[in-house]
Design a protein around this nucleic acid. Structure first.
Lengths: 298, 298
DNA sequence: GTCCAGTGATGCAAAAAAGGAAGCGGTTTA
DNA sequence: TAAACCGCTTCCTTTTTTGCATCACTGGAC
């Protein structure tokens, strides 16, 4: 869209930190870009960059402006989506930020089911830790976020949720495999591996242990739940995951056992959008679909 | 702002009903305007006008788009206002749509008081009947509306209110001047004049009479409360008005007497904005000022 | 201190985009 | 049937934007 060209350039300058580098990125000359920005500032009535010796940086006015532009761009997409919808074209695009647990089973299944009904709708799936997911939302990079234990929840509007009890993951031949429910202390007394601190599963475990005298001593920490699941097959340790990220039935030699909610309260898997935003048609409908599914599972 | 140029043109075409006339209004040739619109439609992805034999008309997609543009324009003004505010410039503009009753005393007083505190803030006061006031809000022509008995209230977010008992207005020498409170039947039994049907005062009177056997028989109907007030001085009739539009004390030979609330329930003077909109700084602050005043009067 | 790499700003000519004039084919109106 | 409008297209001119070369300035390496 032509009239958002200025926004593209301004955003590029913001990212690059200097007009010349941004010009390079956008394949125009720095003089042209420089004049565009000067001209925009004049029309806008305020400077939006502060000129530093080694480049430029957005000033507070610029921050506000960027926010406005993002909103504007998202609004335009929504209008286009609404128009497409009333034109009878069931097309559109859904972008969703999600935790790793949703990647293997849940989301592929839901998206495939949705695309069966609406083949014209395309998807972008951004795997993000919970902080990054919320950032994605507030910067209009994703329409929806499906996150385990989101953190700050400012600008985050909850659309649906599903409680998730943390499970321990182990091989068939693990000593604890015989029990149907585990206590946390049993888990950390045996060799175990943990997700990195930015993840919700880890946060819940850390909180549960904070009041205790015992400490977790993970032999491996990782940012990949997929890696951890595979690692368990090689060394006979415990890993942790939430049920939505686990296959209903064990198929690759792994067993999942819930950890007593006396030790770790259930965490929440939450579906949300940016507060106050009206979503494009396709995203709103897919959200409804997800909400219904979450309610079914509950 | 340069990037809203397309909007101006599209709106002009919408108003004019034909590209050629719009081109004339906007002082460009029809060919140029025609191409702008074709190009915009191509970029947007959908036609926004339906081509008729005698001109063009917005299609539903176009309606949606116009709505979006209006929102966008208002948002931009809000951002500029916020930036001005954080730059320490206490300037800005407030546009308010109001009923006639606010014109003589209330609004001039409030605006003058506000401008004493913030001399940089300018005002636009649009006198509108209650329907037009709401339309003004939803089309982003006014930031605020202060209306007696608004009608539909869709897209209307109430910020504050003040009950108003309808008063009868008469000369000193009127037979009813001796009573401290009037009954409605006494008023319509004597010669009287009424506001036009689109006004809230009239609506309340009509509703009150609808269950009765008596009918109002106004000798004069008018859209101007100012006219009616002056008319009472020439012919010894009753007129009607709400207290906020009356001077605290009679000064020009007129007397106001409340009509019993057994006959006509108090109407509401309501301050509102377009639902969900974030107002520019100056408008938001002036609204707070008004709300406080309304609460004091209550 | 000096130099150098890197920055934003600016004058000027070239390129690109937008605008204007005229006219075509169509439909409504008188 | 003729005149009046309409949207749209073509050709050419005008305006705007871009690219290139260059200036003035700053911070860091040496």
């Amino acid at each position: 869209m032509r009239h958002l060209q200025n926004f593209r350039y301004i955003e590029a300058v913001m990212r690059a930190g200097s007009i010349r580098r941004a010009a390079d990125d956008m394949n125009i000359t720095s003089s042209a870009l420089n004049r565009r920005i000067q001209r925009f500032e004049e029309e806008f009535g305020f400077e939006i960059f502060e000129r530093l010796p080694r480049g430029v940086r957005l000033n507070p006015a610029g921050e506000l402006l960027i926010q406005h532009f993002r909103q504007q761009e998202s609004d335009l997409r929504r209008v286009q989506s609404q128009v497409a919808d009333l034109a009878g074209e069931r097309r559109g695009h859904v972008s969703i930020a999600c935790s790793q647990a949703l990647v293997p089973y849940f989301l592929p299944e839901r998206i495939a089911a949705y695309r069966l009904k609406h083949p014209g709708v395309t998807f972008t799936v951004n795997v993000r830790d919970r902080r990054a997911a919320e950032k994605d939302l507030s910067e209009f990079n994703s329409d929806l976020a499906l996150v385990f234990e989101p953190v700050q929840m400012v600008d985050f509007e909850v659309l649906g949720h599903l409680p998730q009890v943390i499970h321990a993951l182990m091989r068939h031949d693990h000593p604890l495999a015989s029990k149907s429910e585990l206590r946390l202390r049993d888990c950390i007394d045996v060799p175990h591996i943990l997700p990195a601190p930015e993840f919700g599963v880890r946060a819940l475990i850390d909180i549960a242990l904070s009041g205790s005298t015992r400490h977790a001593q993970p032999s491996v920490e990782s940012g990949s739940f997929d890696f951890m699941r595979h690692y368990v097959l090689h060394e006979n340790v415990l890993a942790f995951q939430i049920p939505i990220g686990l296959r209903p039935r064990d198929e690759d030699g792994l067993i999942a056992r819930p950890i007593s909610t006396r030790d770790i309260p259930p965490g929440a898997l939450i579906l949300g959008q940016r507060r106050g935003r009206s979503l494009p048609v396709a995203s709103a409908k897919f959200a409804q679909d997800l909400i219904a599914t979450l309610e079914t599972l509950q």
